[in-house]
Design a protein around this nucleic acid. Structure first.
Lengths: 216, 216
DNA sequence: TTCTAATTTACTTTTATATTGACATCAGCG
DNA sequence: CGCTGATGTCAATATAAAAGTAAATTAGAA
């Protein structure tokens, strides 16, 4: 790994400021924003960044990109953006829009390296209709918003504008089939207008309660 | 709570307008209605909505629906760090190796509110011996370090100092029983000295690959 | 001097905002 | 069924603001 030259006082100070901004505020300041807060000109900040990059304390991407990766002592890309917060949707309904508080069932922190994609959301699973693929009641399903789905994908679907469920999706010539993954349940057929795809399930998170509920 | 991407002045202004319309007038304006009131074109409003959705301030539903969900508009900052990094252990050998980075297979970011406890670690599950309780091959098992376990708990056990497995634990009068949760497997008995408990499984995390591997 | 840090000024690139026009979609109506 | 009006979407484009880059320059310190 690259040797890291010692920093000057100003460089160290700036690096500290940068770390704070990124880790605590989750926000990479622009050159001019940082310049304003440090009391210097924006170009000074640019030169500072270049110096820090040369010395191996951070890595920047692209020519005109703003994204910055802080490097930890071992030179690995440490996780400034390692984590991310997604909303846990309490209910999915279509009818009248629900206002924030009612629908805000909290937030979930997930690992960026594990789940890619934008605007993910999470949904608490009810019922055991998908237990054969390891999705149990109480699990949090991490979802990627989607209006359409491919055959065989596991999706969150809104049925007749009432009920939101997690099922495996199949598009048949004359109907839509939603298949539970549990021998005790039968697939159900729906007309094309009865089902509204809300998203694709891309992950599962189960907490201690979920583990405890599994009976020997 | 993580700060979401900062808004520009116009975006903030529009969001305020939207909140007022929804809360006080109980009415979601159409693109052209809003456009008229804001003095811009209807497409500008559409782009604004898209920008706000990208930044995570609201969520829209359906392709041609106009229902809008506002997400946590008050933007309160709740508590300090919601997230935590825990090591993903590649192999478990005798003793507790989790201090050094020797066996590191990476790290995993988890939600503090979901998993309590100290010195947690994660382990990648191999095999489908626990599939009846929703633990599949490839899942990450979040574990709390433990040297003992209660009857019926799901644990990570090291068998004869060689193999680390996830099983349900039972302490019998004259032996230890490790029970897979899969009809195709039989429980196995071990002498007291053959089994070393390493931790208790308190959570499961499954990523996109894990979901994809489940076959219809 | 040479090096570092900073400034000013003038660029290029990217993003945000806005416009127009054409095209789906839906609901109601005859 | 097709018509109609209101709506949401998309594509192409234009303009302005904001952000990153580069060059020339200055001042101070080793």
């Amino acid at each position: 790994m690259a040797k890291r030259s010692p920093l000057t006082d100003k460089q160290r100070h700036f690096l500290t400021y940068l770390e704070r901004e990124i880790r605590q505020e989750d926000h990479i300041p622009s050159l001019r924003q940082a310049a304003a807060q440090m009391g210097v000109s924006h170009t000074a900040v640019a030169q500072m960044l270049k110096a820090l990059e040369d010395k191996g304390y951070l890595r920047r991407e692209g020519r005109y990109s703003r994204t910055i990766h802080l490097l930890n002592p071992t030179g690995e890309t440490a996780g400034p953006q390692r984590w991310r917060e997604i909303p846990v949707i309490g209910q999915i309904t279509a009818g009248l829009p629900m206002y924030a508080q009612e629908e805000w069932d909290g937030a979930l922190v997930i690992d960026r390296n594990l789940y890619h994609g934008e605007n993910l959301f999470a949904l608490r699973v009810r019922g055991d209709s998908m237990k054969d693929v390891g999705i149990l009641s109480g699990d949090l399903a991490v979802c990627e918003p989607r209006q359409y789905a491919g055959n065989g994908e596991i999706v969150v679907a809104l049925i007749r504008n009432e009920e939101a469920t997690v099922k495996r999706f199949f598009l048949r010539p004359d109907h839509i089939e939603l298949k539970p993954e549990n021998e005790a349940y039968e697939p159900t057929r729906y007309g094309f207008s009865e089902v509204l795809i809300q998203g694709k399930v891309i992950g599962i998170q189960r907490g201690p309660e979920g583990i405890a509920h599994t009976k020997p």
